[in-house]
């Protein structure tokens, strides 16, 4: 040590953070997972964004398909068609997924989900079990599809001062394409106001959180939700944010926007395509009151048969109360 700053990292600290997996399989943990288990885990944890068969939903990435499309006009880059190393899949699923609940998957679950992604790309059979031992047996179709940066040879030699023209460089100049033909530029004024609103909303909540909660609690007016509970709910809602929006300008996404959802009839958010299960419940008069929402959030699929919401549910009653309190603040 040169300056004597910092302290020695403990082995258990290094073990907690040093989890990156390399192409040669080094640092792979003990464990295993089957395609069969992976199918269920994928449905629960991944399908909301990536589709039941890893085919992708909306603008979220497709994880399967796209074979032999890389030289096409619109290449479809998936784990099967593009990713050169399986280690990258395991590493990424384990460290960064599911979106909004990263680093919650066990090693066995990560092996299983990785196995299912391989299966969805027709790279392994349905009885395949991925483990530290079988990992390096898997062949990735595009493993040889990459070259190291060769711009120095292919580009830098021709884009030079010597080749730069200054006068009469072209006989004629014609406009060959206009951006207004496609017209995909955001409407700046409107867009800006929507953006501002959605960015300001959380700030207001945060401010409420820091205002002397003791005084607030002393005078429990009407049915105002407890600010602490609302703040806790905002935190729980991070699990939901990938699919559900709230606040000014909230739009439907993978799931419906949730402004005013508490106390309102089910299946009634304009413009959202509900599952038939939820439509049936709505037809039966379901209203999202505290009790119904609690049941739904405990085990969504038990409460609404056939719901598209792939979220497994909240285990903790406190979390459910908190997130309902948070949602009740959006009208």
């Amino acid at each position: 040590d040169v300056y004597g700053l910092g302290r020695e990292a403990l082995p258990e600290e290094i073990a907690a953070w040093n989890v990156d997996i390399s192409p040669d399989g080094s640092n792979l943990p003990e464990g295993s997972g089957s395609v069969e288990d992976g199918e269920i885990l994928f449905s629960d944890n991944c399908a909301a964004c990536h589709g039941e068969f890893a085919e992708g939903a909306g603008n979220w990435p497709k994880l399967a398909g796209g074979d032999d499309t890389l030289a096409n006009d619109d290449p479809v880059k998936t784990v099967g068609s593009y990713w050169p190393y399986l280690s990258t899949v395991f590493d990424y699923v384990h460290r960064s997924m599911p979106f909004g609940a990263a680093q919650t998957l066990s090693y066995d679950d990560t092996y299983a989900i990785t196995a299912y992604i391989l299966y969805s790309n027709f790279l392994v059979d349905d009885d395949f079990v991925l483990s530290k031992e079988t990992f390096m047996d898997v062949e990735m179709p595009n493993a040889d599809g990459f070259i190291i940066d060769d711009r120095a040879e292919t580009e830098y030699t021709q884009f030079t001062e010597a080749n730069a023209c200054y006068e009469n460089c072209k006989d004629s100049v014609e406009i060959t394409m206009r951006a207004t033909v496609l017209d995909v530029t955001p409407e700046t004024e409107e867009e800006a106001s929507v953006q501002d609103a959605s960015e300001e909303a959380p700030v207001e909540v945060a401010a409420a959180e820091t205002e002397a909660p003791a005084e607030e609690a002393a005078a429990p007016a009407m049915a105002e939700p407890d600010p602490e509970l609302v703040a806790a709910g905002e935190n729980v809602f991070k699990k939901c944010k990938a699919c559900h929006k709230v606040g000014e300008g909230a739009k439907n996404g993978t799931g419906p926007m949730l402004n005013g959802i508490i106390g309102h009839p089910a299946g009634a958010v304009e413009g959202f395509k509900y599952s038939s299960g939820l439509q049936d419940a709505a037809a039966g008069g379901l209203v999202w009151d505290q009790a119904a929402m609690t049941q739904f959030l405990t085990k969504p699929r038990d409460f609404i048969k056939g719901t598209k919401m792939s979220f497994v549910g909240l285990k903790d009653q406190e979390d459910i109360d908190a997130v309902i309190a948070y949602l009740s603040t959006f009208e």
């Binding site: 040669d24 890389l70 290449p75 190393y85 990258t88 990424y92 190291i148 940066d149 060769d150 711009r151």
Partner: peptide, 30 residues
């Protein structure tokens, strides 16, 4: 002693050429 080849250096931030092969490690911004 090697590149980790993470998601952000393989599946993303790599440049696919017309023939379908892709350049990797294209770090410098020209």
């Amino acid at each position: 002693d090697h590149a980790v080849e993470s998601r952000e250096e393989t599946s993303k931030y790599t440049d696919t050429l017309a023939d379908g092969t892709s350049r990797k490690w294209t770090w410098v911004m020209d």
